[in-house]
Structure formats: C-alpha cells, structure tokens
Design a protein around this nucleic acid. Structure first.
Lengths: 221, 221
DNA sequence: TGACTGAATTATGAATTCATTATTCATTTA
DNA sequence: TAAATGAATAATGAATTCATAATTCAGTCA
C-alpha cells in the first residue's frame, strides 16, 4: 500500500492547514496587528470553523514565529521590531547564499535565462525609478534563485522567514544611492549565475542581503 | 498590562508543547520508526492525555518535517533517506556558517576560551580514538558556536534541522582519514574564532559541514 | 476620587462526542 | 483458489462540552 496520489484532488487538505495560511495572511497584511491578541472567537466565526482546527493552526504559527503563545492567555501577534528584523534577515541571507551556491550548480539554462531577463527588467525599472515594479521584479528574482536551487526544504524554510520580514524587505524605502548599488549587485548576481560560479554567487547573495540589512537599519533609525 | 514573567515558573507550558518534545524524542530515538504511522491511540494512552493536544503536537512536528500528514490517514514518520540528508545538511551548514560569522563578532572571551578548551579535548578524544567522547564533544562545540552567535531565531531553527539529521551526523562511522581531517578543521575553527575572523570562520564552518556531507554520502552508498 | 475586593463573565486548555472516511474481514462469485 | 463485494470495525477530522484560569466590573472602604 502506498500513499501516492495520482489525482492530487480527491482528498482536500485538512482545515488546520488551510487556516494556517489564512491566518498568516491576516497577520502579514496587518489586519491582525502586532502585539494584539489573536481573537479566537472572531476568527472561528469569520472562517466558519470550530476552535479545534484554528488552535492547531495557531500552534504552527507560533512555531513559525508569527505569534507567541502565552500560557492561559492564548496567542499574541509577534511584534515586528527592528530587533526581530536584525535576527531574521541574516538568516534569510544565509539561506539565499546557500540557494545561490546550489542554483549555480543545478539551475537549468532556462532558469538562468529567466533570471537574466528579470535582471534586465530590474535595471529598466530602476532607470524609470518605478519602485513598485522594481520591488516586484526584485522579489521574483530572489524567488527564482531559491526555486532554481532545487531543495524543497530550503524553499519552505526560506519562505517562512522571508514572510516574516516581507514588509520590511519590500516596503522599506531605499535611498537613491543604495538603489543604484542594489541594481548593480543584481547584475553581478546574474553574471555569477550565468558563469555557474557557485562560491561567488553565494558570497554575492550573502553580501546583498547584508547590505539590505544595513539599508533597513538606517531607514528605521 | 504586560506579559513579563518574573518568576518564570507559575504557569506551566501547554500540554501540546510538552508533547511536541516527547513525540519528537520518540522519533529521534527510533521508537517510532520511519515510514510507519504515528499511533495516536497508543500515544494518548502512553502519555495519559487526550487526542486534542497530541494532534496539535503532530501538526507542529509536520511543520518541522518529522512527520508527513496524509489527509484522512493521519501522520506518517518521515523517512530518513539519503535524499533527506542531502537536503537538510547543506541548510545546517549555511546556518552554522552564519552562526560562525555572528559568533566571531559577538562571542564573549569566555565563550571563546570554552570552545578552545573543548577543541583541545576533541583532539585528545581523537588521539585516543574514543568515538563516543569525540561525538559528544563535537556536538558541544557546534552547540556552543550557535549559542555564541546570540541569535535566538537562528538557534531555534538550527536545532530543528540539526535534530532531523542527528543520527546521520553523529552516528555515521567516519573513516580514519576523515576523522583526522575533521579534527584539524576544528582546530582551524577555534583559531578563526579566537582571531575573531568572521568571514573566515563562516567559510570554515560551511566547508566543514560540506565535508561532513561528503563523508556521510560515501558511508551510506 | 481612587485603590481594593470579590462575584460574574469570558477565554483558554483539554477531554469528549460525533460524523465521515479508511481499513479489515468474512462472504460471494468467477 | 483468487478476486470482488460489502458489512463491521477502527481511525480520523472537526465540533462540542467541560473544568479551570484570567479578566471585567460593581461595590466597598480609605
């Protein structure tokens, strides 16, 4: 007997899994505000479920770091302090650095072309000073590199951490000079990938994220 | 109103948190065998709890990757294939590399002396060809470096991944030549830390783990 | 007024119950 | 005999119930 699911559709996922994603979105979108309690009753009514699967979801979100459990007082949305970001962003950097090394080894030529093309568009968005487009392409590039690494556990773990600093990473205003520098770093990243320079790409990505950290730090202070 | 807990003892942690640790131990010790179902009924009776907190624990373990949820068929202990290890160990390497960089910056002088002393004892255990002691000290050194990094999120995340490959990492027999090499690497690691060479230490740790991966791969093939 | 007390209310943590889905196993049929 | 059927059994997912802890709030007293 095997669990292989050739249809992929007959059994729908457990409610708690669905709820984990939905509640996480509420936190990321800021509807559930940091420092506030997670309103169990409201959420069960909103999603039309009982407390059991919701509480399972909250346990998982606590493990991801989105909420903090307080014994006998439920869960509180974890605050997004600068300290939090200083903790998380270096981890994202280490993971993206590894992703770069793996991507340099495992990426398909199509992956590389795709990232190269995205990098060209990133440059165009910078030249046009089009921030929303820039951020969106930037995000696509980082996602594509993680994807190209071909390591599912890395992909999942990165996603968890990246989501926690999503706003800081993509909504922090960056200075003109840092913006230019970041664009140039992305071009070097695309080159290292095309050259399949694993070590170099890993190093470039770690530095890129480290610069990003510096930029956020100065913006928030 | 604040949640500060000056006593740290009055409220005991939720059952589900306790159960997460207990069940994880059962998996790590091999009592719950990979590929087998997680026996809900047996575990509730063994621990004297109801299914509710146990199932919350299982959800968290699924998120950690120790078990896999199968809709309407409960949870299965995740297999420890070579593929799994090939996925996880590089992530541990990236995290330890970061830990090294941070430790080089933030470690106290006492931390450094402690790790240096442990490294001396590691050398002695190698000279005596005392594998159990070597493995135990080895583990202490890696744990001390992560600790010294002073990043709680990194500590937690590393622990989760490290536990998943615990057996492979510390019980895989290593060859005489690799053993010698690993011991020497540890001495370089201690030196780089003493010199507070962040980049160098990060690089050394990433390489150390990468060699470990190679050693496990050849042992399991 | 303003801090304190304690009953009423509410929320939480956990056990239990219930509906649904999977599994087992005896029986039938080719 | 071997495969197929379907009733009986067991396990799962989710809702509900229950005991306990926290919070609120009216009343008391300085």
């Amino acid at each position: 007997m095997t669990f292989a699911d050739t249809t992929g559709k007959l059994a729908r996922p457990a409610l708690s899994v669905e709820l984990t994603d939905r509640v996480r979105e509420l936190i990321m979108e800021g509807e559930l505000k940091e420092g506030h309690k997670v309103p169990e009753r409201y959420l069960t009514e909103r999603f039309g479920v009982s407390r059991t699967p919701l509480r399972e979801a909250i346990k998982v979100l606590a493990h991801e770091g989105f909420v903090v459990l307080v014994p006998n007082r439920g869960a509180v949305v974890a605050p997004q302090s600068l300290d939090e970001i200083e903790e998380i962003l270096p981890i994202v950097g280490a993971l993206e650095g590894l992703a770069g090394e793996l991507a340099a080894q495992h990426a398909s030529d199509a992956d590389i072309r795709n990232i190269s093309r995205l990098t060209d568009r990133l440059r165009e968005a910078f030249e046009a000073r089009d921030r929303p487009t820039y951020f969106q392409i930037n995000q696509s590039i980082h996602a594509a590199i993680i994807q190209a690494a071909g390591n599912p556990a890395l992909l999942r773990n990165h996603a968890t951490f990246a989501r926690r600093i999503y706003r800081a990473r993509y909504q922090a205003n960056l200075s003109e000079s840092r913006w230019k520098e970041a664009t140039e770093e992305h071009e070097k990243i695309a080159e290292a990938l095309a050259a399949r320079d694993a070590k170099g790409l890993g190093e470039l990505l770690r530095e890129h994220l480290s610069h990003k950290m510096r930029s956020i730090r100065s913006a928030l202070k």
